[in-house]
Design a protein around this nucleic acid. Sequence first.
DNA 1: GTCTATATACAGATAGAC
DNA 2: GTCTATCTGTATATAGAC
Lengths: 180, 180
Amino acid sequence: MSRPPHARESVLDAFERLLVEDGERAATMDAAARAAGVSKGGLLYHFASKDALEQALLERLDALAEADVAAMATASEGAVAYFVRTSVMDGNALDRALISASRLAQSGHAGAVDALRRVRARWEDELRPHVRDEAALDLVLLVSDGLYFNNALNAAGAGGTVPRGPALDALVALVERSAR
Amino acid sequence: MSRPPHARESVLDAFERLLVEDGERAATMDAAARAAGVSKGGLLYHFASKDALEQALLERLDALAEADVAAMATASEGAVAYFVRTSVMDGNALDRALISASRLAQSGHAGAVDALRRVRARWEDELRPHVRDEAALDLVLLVSDGLYFNNALNAAGAGGTVPRGPALDALVALVERSAR
DNA sequence: GTCTATATACAGATAGAC
DNA sequence: GTCTATCTGTATATAGAC
């Protein structure tokens, strides 16, 4: 790791935040520089192009997803329950990375589509031993995708359609019963 | 209906297609005019602003969703099976309207977020009598959202993670068993 | 109804000073 | 490493001819 430059991380954080909160169109290099408190020239020293900025975001996602898969494997409540429960966004680093990558993917960014597929495939492999069959695996993954989709819609505006508290507990229990 | 002008519908179709296939950033008035084979001036006669263009798309979604709810209510296979099965995109008008609205919503378009919430609420009310409890209702809606999310990611590039054929049959059966 | 021409703003990116 | 100044393209929108 070796202590990356402060400005670099600030720019990356700002760019990610813009993607999550305001969408891909608003996530310009200009806006990222302004939000990070650096000039456009300063940003361009760290990221020579917009593509480089996006690439850095996807590498961050890969690392965070890897850590999440490891956490899922050792979760005391079981992999399925951990997976569904953590699909409700609480604003952590992985959530932000996933939502921002999905914004890029929906703008046709091929690298972002690939990155999201890779993450999904890792989850799939980790969950397979914990479910009855492929239909159950589809069900678990799709409920998670559905939660992320609603998170993504709500990330900008006010919260809404995502179950929390007792409703989430009941959903987790139902998915576990259905899948195994 | 009274036979709306041909150019108007062409522009709206082209704008929708750009949103679905290339994302919000690519869906410019310029690109829509070009794709529809009219000039920018021609487009602006029918839609005075980009907002008017987006608004027309959301009105189209409302109408198509209303028709879908009606179809769901009388589906011979039952509402739940109909709902899950038709959440796999086959490129029909409602699919395109939903994906394009979700592109707008993810760019922070408040009207699009509202429109999608309204559609989801209509589905929810229609499905509630057909499921055991609120957790089951959440499960059915989230599987559908998950399918749409994957559809939306795949709409641009090559197909991928959405179950079809026998895998879809097995998923529909599992969701029905889990929900009722 | 559909067109061309144009105004204004902002995007991504380059050059080079400090 | 961070800045200012500037180039080039493209976005939304207006004005007005046909």
